[in-house]
Design a binder for these strands. Structure first.
Lengths: 348, 348
DNA sequence: CTGAAAGCGCTAACAT
DNA sequence: ATGTTAGCGCTTTCAG
């Protein structure tokens, strides 16, 4: 079965191999290999000749061959839930920038929103032979599974939250919850609604933010009212649904803490439809400082997401180069950005 | 003969080689290779035995070895300007979904905003040995360069705009410009500002939209006033800057057409700061129907971006399977979504 | 239908 | 400092 040639294309331009270079430079393939990878024990004059020959032939080592021989693939996988979410895409951008710089390919793998640990593990292990490292973005993986992956001598990093035994980068999410709650409390709010993560799966980021939130409430003697929490999945639509749920109550909250800006946007959308004014009727605070947050004047807790990705990638690259397990240098800074969706509760 | 014993064996991505499987199944490696790839000329009973053995050992062909032997890498590159832009990230998500389904890895490569053709080509050719196909997202590549890439028997697809000689998916951008302009004209606007793409580089999407825009103007006897065009680079900030530039004029426009929603968001932001009301003082229309567009009530021209990515990936996958050059099936549909940023000009 | 063996292009001992 | 050579794990003629 030969491929039906559509046209008279010349034969596949046979790429130069290491042997061609060796011949041209008048040395052995081993020398070429060493010279081109800047290994020691190559005479300067020789290295020079080889480099010229390689340039001449526009030679680049075949990655497949090189991978087979070394066992290193020079690429890293980023596994993430929503590839098109604001958070994820910014992390990916950060990762790609430093990986490209360091000569690594970055392979993206989406596991679908709300994936269970098994799904993530399946995705990770199906890719493990093709990459040197895996960066998990906001996904859950069990300790055992992580161990299984690490046993394949894969470098593992988590961004978004801590994962057992592996180095992780992110922010202090308990602190985020505290900051948001304190801001609202300081304004005088006592009944605060919360738009949570999904409640089927025990996601860790939502859990932490919620913990900090409740902590701050208790600090001032307010007992958290869990009937004021509504689940969401980090989309605009979820935020809108949540606003309705919250405002349909006989005793609606005077303020809402959305665990992510995108859900906060949904709140704004739905409030608009309903004729509810923000912040006059209800205050709103989000998390992320999404590019659009200033546009709608959203008060939020800022974090530098692209930098998280970059940091994760740097850790990967260094770890791959040095072989030692690196530890992250603590949570990245966050800060409250007060805009115009928060105000004191109106006297009722 | 060391079959993993504990119940945790399914957790262990295994390093079994084809030889292990052959031994276990009592056949040759050639047969294993054939059986596992569903090639013809394998007895059912044999295939069965092999499959069981493979399963037992949790065997998966080493991709590097397989690539070296076949010359196919089973991965595709997506080259894109802003990895974190709304448009790009949605395309990437679409691509990844179908690639994963078809067993291809998707490698993202960012070329930086406003890249010149050479940069893109450099990025593309530096990755060409590692992928079977390249999907260009909204980047320019010259005919010659494309040819050089195609000569490496790479499958090439463009999304966002047409590229010479290669199959492309996207929308009719001239039509987009027409739709936006007609909407504004129909409302009674005569002086319409336009927030363009960057003007150093000749990007094709902005050019087309602008063409349709001017066409619609002339249809009703309005001569386009190019002093009302201001360059932008598709960010929120660029939109804000543009609004200021436009409104600082002695004769500001009564409506603004932003070539992308993200720039329109910037307009809203800046208008707010300046106390300019939309649509009372100036109407605004964008393009994309960004997730946040409904939140700010932005009138815009909708397109299904993730679907573009998916379609591009499907074309790639089919082309890779069948070997023939496929042609796309015409531009994807777009439609005007009227929200509340457009209205008739106020009588001055 | 199945097996033996020759690569694919490169790296890494091991020699020299 | 450089060359020789044996793999890396899989695919693919070519025989049988």
């Amino acid at each position: 079965m030969s491929v039906p040639t559509t046209e008279s294309h010349h034969l596949r331009p046979s790429r130069a191999t290491i042997e061609d270079v060796a011949k041209l430079a008048g040395v052995s393939v081993a020398t070429v290999s060493r010279a081109l990878r800047n290994l020691p024990n190559v005479a300067d004059s020789t290295r020079n000749r080889v480099e010229i020959a390689a340039l001449e032939l526009n030679y680049h080592a075949d990655p497949a061959a090189s991978r087979l021989a070394t066992g290193r693939s020079r690429s890293v996988a980023v596994v993430v839930q929503l590839l098109n979410g604001w958070y994820s895409s910014h992390v990916v951008a950060g990762v790609e920038a430093v990986c490209a710089e360091a000569g690594y390919d970055t392979i993206v793998v989406g596991v679908g929103p709300g994936s269970r640990e098994q799904d993530v593990f399946a995705a990770a292990s199906s890719i493990h032979r093709r990459v040197d490292a895996i960066i998990f973005v906001d996904v859950r993986v069990s300790s055992d599974e992580l161990q299984a992956l690490a046993d394949q001598s894969l470098v593992l990093v988590s961004v978004g939250h801590e994962l057992p035994e592996i180095t992780s980068v992110g922010i202090d999410d308990v602190e985020v919850g505290r900051i948001a709650a304190r801001h609202l409390i300081g304004l005088g709010h006592r009944r605060i609604g919360l738009i949570n993560g999904p409640d089927e799966l025990p996601f860790v980021v939502p859990h932490h933010r919620l913990t900090g939130f409740e902590e701050a409430l208790r600090e001032v003697g307010i007992e958290p009212d869990r009937s004021l929490y509504v689940a969401g999945n980090f989309t605009v639509q979820d935020g809108a649904d949540a606003l309705h749920a919250l405002m349909d109550r006989p005793d609606p909250p005077t303020a809402i803490f959305a665990l992510a800006d995108e859900m906060a946007f949904g709140v704004i959308l739905a409030a608009d439809e309903r004729g509810i004014r923000i912040p006059e009727d209800v205050s709103l605070i989000g998390v992320d400082d999404h590019d659009v947050a200033p546009v709608v004047g959203l008060t939020t807790v800022h974090q530098d997401v692209a930098e998280h990705g970059a940091r994760a990638a740097r850790l990967v690259v260094e770890q791959l180069a040095q072989g030692e397990r690196l530890t992250d240098d603590g949570p990245a800074p966050v800060r409250l950005i007060v805009r115009r969706t928060t105000a004191p509760p109106s006297p009722s």
